[in-house]
Amino acid sequence: MDFLTSPFDWWIEPFYDNVFMRNALWSGLLAVLATSTVGTWVVLRGMSFFGEALGHGVLPGIAIAFILGGDTMVGAVIAALVMVFGVNLIRAHSPLPEDSSIGLLYVGFLALAVVILSSSSGAYSGDITRFLFGSITGVTDSDLLRQLIIAGITLLGIVVLHRAFLVMTFDEVQAELLGLRPRVAHAALLALLAIAIVASFQAVGNLLVFAFLVAPPSTAAMCVRRVPAIMITAVMLGAVAVVVGLLISYHHDTAAGATMALGTVILFLIALLIRSLSGTYNVRLIT
């Protein structure tokens, strides 16, 4: 119960005395800012499976960049954009549903990553684990700068394309009639999703980024009704998960990324329980 009996020592001192904790805090908050805003559209458009697939789809780029000694974030960006392009290409030329093309590329990219990683030296296993599960306490100033730039690009895209995303989410035919080019907007959303995931893998890792992408917006959608309010609430909920998760990890020596991701899911379950007890089940959005 130190968080109640010694609030300064538990809540403040870890960030005050440790540079790595302050960097981890900023990294986590930037990751939440990028994923929760894009994740709102992922949740509203029912694209959660694609978000999960893309989270794993960046692994081949990371693996190749790592083995060649290059920048893993650049490799992740390239792999993510290739997967987005591939999904749109298969979607345009295949009679199969979109989830089929996503599933095929998901398996293909994941298998490619396993092949690449299995061919490399076992001495790299520690770094591979960091890519999979995150190493937020090891972020550097250059990592934070890149996260800041990517988060800024994501927010700019969300603001500029808000109307197109909103209309195509609820009525794609109307979006076409209004000249909003829903296919182009959809491709832009996938690109923003890709760079948001890339910005977050340093913080929570590829296998856990899905929690940040889906859980805070899903929780927010049960609490508020307007899309901008969902985004703001999702960012706030994600920020709570980051702060509390980091502190629990620091005081109890748990994996930071997994602890933060677990926090987002716990917040969702709490909101769901409260909503169930109140007898409210339907979520109606106000556009």
Rank of each mutant, 00 (worst) to 15 (best):
V115I: 15
D127Y: 00
M83N: 05
L96A: 15
G103Q: 05
L89P: 02
I90H: 03
A111V: 10
V74P: 00
A92D: 11
A113S: 15
T137W: 05
M83L: 12
M83F: 06
V84A: 09
S120F: 06
A76I: 08
R91M: 01
G126T: 15
G108C: 05
I128T: 07
V87A: 05
L132E: 00
H93I: 13
E98M: 10
A76K: 10
V107E: 04
Y124N: 13
G103M: 09
D127F: 00
F85Q: 08
G103I: 03
Y124S: 13
I128L: 03
I78C: 05
S135T: 02
G108P: 00
G108A: 09
I136Y: 07
A80Q: 06
G75Y: 00
L81V: 15
V74R: 09
I136C: 01
T129G: 00
M83K: 05
S101H: 01
L96C: 03
N88M: 12
G108N: 06
V77G: 02
V115N: 06
V115T: 12
S121V: 12
A113I: 03
V87Q: 03
S121C: 03
I78E: 05
V84K: 03
V115L: 15
S100P: 03
G122V: 02
S121K: 08
L105H: 02
M83S: 01
I102K: 08
S119Q: 14
S119G: 15
A76F: 10
L105Y: 01
H93W: 11
L96D: 03
G86L: 04
G134L: 05
V82I: 15
N88K: 13
V87F: 07
L132M: 07
L81S: 01
H93V: 14
G108K: 01
M83P: 00
F133G: 07
D127I: 13
L89S: 07
T129W: 11
S100C: 12
Y124G: 14
L112K: 08
H93E: 12
A111I: 06
L104A: 15
S118E: 13
V87S: 02
L89N: 03
L110M: 15
Y106D: 08
P97K: 10
L105N: 04
Y106N: 12
I78L: 14
R91T: 10
L112G: 15
A92F: 01
M83I: 07
L89M: 13
M73D: 06
V77T: 13
L105Q: 08
G103R: 04
E98L: 07
R91A: 14
P95Y: 09
S101T: 09
R91Q: 13
S121I: 05
Y124M: 14
F131E: 04
S125V: 14
I90F: 12
T140G: 14
N88I: 01
A76L: 10
R130A: 15
L89R: 10
G103E: 09
